[in-house]
Design a binder for these strands. Structure first.
Lengths: 342, 342
DNA sequence: CAATATTAGTAAAACGATTGCATAAACGTG
DNA sequence: CACGTTTATGCAATCGTTTTACTAATATTG
């Protein structure tokens, strides 16, 4: 049997409550006693029992990580695992553990959440995606549960704690990068998955064009499904045009890869005929040919920041909902060049 | 405050112990009483408190999922998230939860595990990778902790519960697929990460060649780092040869993508000049051009199987260590054709 | 110096289940 | 019908902490 608080108390010659207070660094225990107790703890290799302390203190020290309902494709994006890594690293350092939650659809996720809450299996939730009208976010908000959104809040932005990149700025900087290279005919390709970040990146793209007095051409802005059969269609439509763009902002590396395939089919070469600036800076960016210039969004840091917000709010209830912006940066590779150069 | 077992007991007019036994479907409670209790549970929306039941029963109902120490690249492989999904789905269905564990290096992982064990924070561990001489696996074995390996056991295979593909068979079938197309000069490309599955796939590849009386050429078998600077070097060496292979077995889609890049640089076209059969059937396989013929290893099922073994062993201590083989299958796409055809 | 405030620590009651043991009722059986 | 058995249920201890309320000892103050 593992060593308990009583064993430590006995060895140190104090009562269990004193040991407990020493662990919490309670001010009403003298330094002398604390030292004595700490020595005993070290000697016995004592670690407080997780369930017992949870039960007594009525908190679980468990944070639920909610993944979007599972369509396989979504998970191919390494964003999720990176963010999870960030979260668990921070949580581990602070004696919290995590439980990953997902399901076949939103209803199933809600069931898991409801049940986790009733059982006292989670102190809060980190939502790793943000969609318009997401029932999961709506439920968490309604029930007054503690949650942190990674991504952009759709409703109740002021009451929601969220952690995000400045996607508008990122989209703008990506477009500006192309504009500064001399491009004027610039397209924008978004994933058709309804995630909010894409809309923001597009908004940034529009902003950049407007600022540089480049007329906006609606047809230059297309949505494409990730990994579906007819994925190439909208891309081919864009690139088949007579006045096709000389550069594109692509909101996900996976899409860029798809784009490269379409380009190869149409005899368009990157970056000579088409400059591409991409998003996420994943393996895809390093493995494609040519290597992609891509905006790194720091998924790991997003995870760290989300976890840190979570813990802040658990430990100081009633804090105002703050938002945290994690910086992005452009990683330059070989997929961009000034237009018309060969 | 949430509804407790006492509330249910009161409403049903029985004692708490009867409610508890009803939950466990204990045989010594009459059907009549059980019905009465179940009705009360439903009415109140009762769910047993997780920490309290853990504390009382001295089990945590938490399964740790151990990821390899974090070098970012590893996580780009969607295998991990797929396997995690499988695990959590199975665990959720059986009222278990999961905690993901990783660290910067093996020592850090060991610390987390040690501490989790002392605190009673895990009933068992699922190891999502297998390396030769892995200190983590060694520790788990030494301490007599319950764990399931996803991948191949290196030492103590007979005492280890593990869940794997038949990678030798998979490697053999991949090579045979190429042989059946008429290829005789077949190479093999492995990731240089020391993971055991790669060696097995290679062994299968050798097997197939031998069986078909094709002489083995050591130089046809190369290792390449995933996503590193000089990754292309060994590939270029292989493909730059005068008598370069007409087909290759590539043990990871990510490597295939790298291979495509190198081929493009050398003016080698796939599949006309080089057939490629790949492994993992990830997005990469569907996004590359041409689309890759790839062996699907069913990562999700591996996760399910691992979790199911875990629970079996938790609930029946002393069970013999069985191994479970999850089937693979070849997904045919456009990267293979008979040699010499254009 | 007595009265009061502060400090340092303890005892014991939660927290919400589980479970071994006791017991009452119902049931056979000779 | 008395006795042993089976069946169904309750009682109370237990799991290992946290925390409230309390006490003893020491320090402070008018």
């Amino acid at each position: 049997m593992a060593v308990t608080i009583k064993d430590v108390a006995e060895l140190a010659g104090v009562s269990p409550s004193t040991v407990s207070r020493t662990c919490k660094d309670h001010p009403s225990i003298s330094l002398q006693t604390k030292e004595k107790v700490r020595l005993a703890m070290k000697k016995l290799g004592y670690e407080p029992n997780f369930q017992a302390s949870s039960l007594a203190s009525q908190t679980s020290r468990i944070i639920g990580i909610i993944l979007p309902p599972s369509e396989k494709e979504i998970y191919e994006n390494s964003f999720y695992l990176e963010a999870i890594r960030g979260i668990i690293q921070y949580c581990n350092e602070h004696q919290y553990i995590n439980t990953v939650i997902t399901g076949k659809n939103e209803e199933e996720i809600l069931d898991v959440i409801r049940s986790a809450v009733k059982r006292g299996q989670a102190d809060g939730f980190i939502l790793l995606y943000s969609w318009e009208e997401d029932p999961v976010a709506a439920y968490l908000m309604e029930e007054g549960l503690l949650y942190v959104l990674v991504g952009k809040a759709y409703r109740n932005a002021n009451q929601t704690v969220y952690v995000d990149n400045d996607n508008i700025l990122a989209g703008r900087e990506a477009a500006e990068y192309l504009i500064n290279l001399g491009h004027r005919k610039i397209g924008c390709i978004l994933p058709a998955n309804g995630l909010l970040f894409a809309a923001d990146r597009r908004a940034g793209y529009f902003l950049a064009l407007t600022e540089h007095q480049i007329p906006i051409c609606q047809d230059y802005c297309v949505e494409a499904a990730l990994c579906s059969r007819d994925q190439g269609e909208p891309l081919r439509a864009l690139l088949g045009r007579e006045d096709r763009p000389t550069a594109v902002v692509v909101c996900d590396d996976i899409l860029s890869l798809a784009l490269e395939t379409v380009c190869a089919g149409l005899g368009i070469s990157i970056p000579e005929d088409l400059s591409v600036i991409s998003f996420n800076n994943s393996v895809f960016a390093r493995l494609s040919s040519p290597h992609l210039t891509s905006v790194d969004i720091n998924a790991f840091q997003l995870g760290i920041a989300a976890a840190s917000q979570m813990l802040r709010h658990i430990e100081n209830p009633g804090l105002l909902a703050t938002k945290v912006i994690v910086p992005h940066h452009i990683i330059e590779r070989d997929s961009c060049q000034p237009p018309g150069e060969r």
